[in-house]
Write a protein that binds this DNA or RNA. Structure first.
Lengths: 155, 155
DNA sequence: GTTTTCTTGACTAATATTGACTAATATTAT
DNA sequence: ATAATATTAGTCAATATTAGTCAAGAAAAC
């Protein structure tokens, strides 16, 4: 074992629970208290160590009875492909190139025609049209990547 | 699971009754008493969890013999249904209400789980996040309506 | 010495709970 | 009939209870 910082320790704690069960639900302040760190460090640990690339989906709720729930998901075998598309999208993308991304998914068999059409509708000009082409391209990129990330696992 | 808030518990209680019957009729003060909350919390639960987007219609009467009646709505044919959702979306919509829209589509059988997840990814915070809540809500509305419009043609 | 990662806390956002006040309807008294 | 009273539900704003974001400084890695 190398020199472990507290983030690593919290990560290990959560992953140990996840070794036995499909998901773990915590109250942020409780865990923060338990490990004697500020609450926002829990967000840091989750953001850096429980990403979708790692095979985790995180949901949360604020307010009374709030929680953070980390779920282990079964990743599909198209990960490298999705990765390459995410890279291709980058942080902004034209409609034309977005169309090509969706077509790639369809032709690879990752999505069917109906799903492709839903994706196209989501990045269409009628959907994303703020008046600034640059802003539109950034939003389109994020919408696409958000969808691509969901195609990584079974749901 | 273990630390649910009382609003969730009341929601679950009502929905359990609605699982067996088309509607449920309550006396507000009785339920408030039963769950040991103030009466107006029942209004909160209904307002946040039994909206028309969720597929419920609520009627009530004040005065002696007053009641609150929650009815599970029978969905119309697909076109009218999508029309009603488009109307419900309007020109801006919160994530919470957007979620309810997608859930309605799913529960109505208009889309399957995979399609629902694609839609949710498209309107997620990770996808639409310009820094202005108002702008986000407008974009979210347009993305949703664009997808809803495409769902008309295909079915 | 520079860059990356970690830690911290101030500020923000979402959701839940509560209660004072209001409105509608029913019942009773005149 | 009409007015007064009782009995419901509705609205709204204040407060409480959570989690999220972001940026600055510290520590570690390179």
């Amino acid at each position: 074992m190398e020199n472990q910082n507290i983030s690593d320790i919290i990560e290990a704690y959560l992953k140990q629970i996840l070794a036995d069960s499909q998901e773990v639900e915590i109250r942020r302040s409780e865990i923060a208290n338990q490990f004697n760190v500020v609450p926002s460090q829990i967000n840091y640990v989750i953001k850096t160590r429980f990403t979708i690339q790692d095979g985790y989906v995180v949901r949360s709720k604020r307010g009374g009875g709030g929680y953070i729930r980390i779920e282990k998901v079964k990743l599909l075998d198209n990960l490298d492909f999705i990765d390459s598309l995410v890279t291709a999208v980058g942080d902004q993308i034209t409609r034309h190139d977005g169309l090509a991304i969706v077509r790639s998914l369809f032709e690879a068999g990752s999505i069917n025609r109906r799903e492709a059409n839903i994706m196209l509708a989501a990045i269409d000009k009628s959907a994303i049209n703020t008046g600034s082409r640059e802003v539109d391209e950034r939003i389109r990129a994020r919408v696409l990547i958000s969808i691509l990330d969901h195609l990584r696992y079974e749901s």
